[in-house]
């Protein structure tokens, strides 16, 4: 999906929010959508038919505006996290330029996080992409639950499970309150636009 059309001076970047079912991917996008100004965001497209579970994907197009004559657009996608939607998850990953792995801090979901990250790695390999070579940030979502009696994982545990290999930037977040949502998005957007422009050896002179 990374698309640089030099003649039209457009740069399109595709960022996918990945993670186990119910970790809060869609909520991240909803929060971004509800907080951003109308002129910068497109219509959020949510294709879901079962309760609030994503069956296909959510898509939120954002427009960064024009920089040095280049119109930069960022499209945020989510995958359906539930295990059974493996094929769709893979399809949504096609042409991905940047990734946010959203992890669920509930202790009971510990294994699911690890499985989902592995699922991501394997799916990318099928497209000839290496996770360690793509822009990636990890979001530890639902931190608002830490103060409740619900057993949650500590940041150290999450780091050990998910970030010991990649050692990428991580963000504590609560998609429902908005905490950390934009921090995550800012970081992955910067990395991704940089990656896309570098990949295409786009050279912009002053």
């Amino acid at each position: 999906m990374a698309l640089i059309d030099l003649s039209k001076k457009e740069i399109h970047c595709k960022i996918v929010y990945y993670g186990p079912g119910r970790c809060g991917k869609t909520t991240n996008l909803l929060t971004v959508h509800s907080t951003m100004a109308d002129n910068a965001r497109g219509k959020m497209l949510t294709i879901e038919t079962k309760g609030d579970r994503t069956l296909f994907f959510d898509l939120l197009p954002l427009n960064l505006g024009t920089i040095r004559g280049f119109n930069i657009r960022i499209q945020l996608y989510t995958v359906p996290g539930q295990v059974m939607y493996a094929a769709t998850r893979k399809l949504v990953l096609k042409g991905v330029d940047g990734l946010v792995f959203v992890a669920d801090p509930l202790q009971v979901r510990r294994e699911r996080n690890i499985e989902s990250l592995e699922d991501l790695r394997v799916n990318l390999l099928d497209y000839g992409l290496k996770l360690e070579e793509l822009p990636l940030v990890i979001q530890y979502n639902k931190r608002d639950l830490v103060d409740t009696p619900i057993p949650t994982l500590t940041v150290a545990e999450l780091d050990a499970d998910l970030n010991s290999v990649f050692n990428v930037k991580t963000f504590e977040a609560s998609a429902v309150t908005g905490m950390g949502v934009f921090e995550t998005l800012r970081e992955i957007s910067k990395q991704t636009v940089r990656y896309v422009t570098n990949k295409h050896l786009l050279h912009v002179t002053k």
Binding site: T27, L30, T31, S34, T35, D144, E172, S174, T177, M179
Partner: peptide
């Protein structure tokens, strides 16, 4: 930053 303060009310819609 382990701040758990909810941010901007506007963002809380989907909760």
């Amino acid at each position: 930053t382990p701040s758990l303060q909810p941010v901007a009310q506007a963002a809380a819609d989907p909760a």
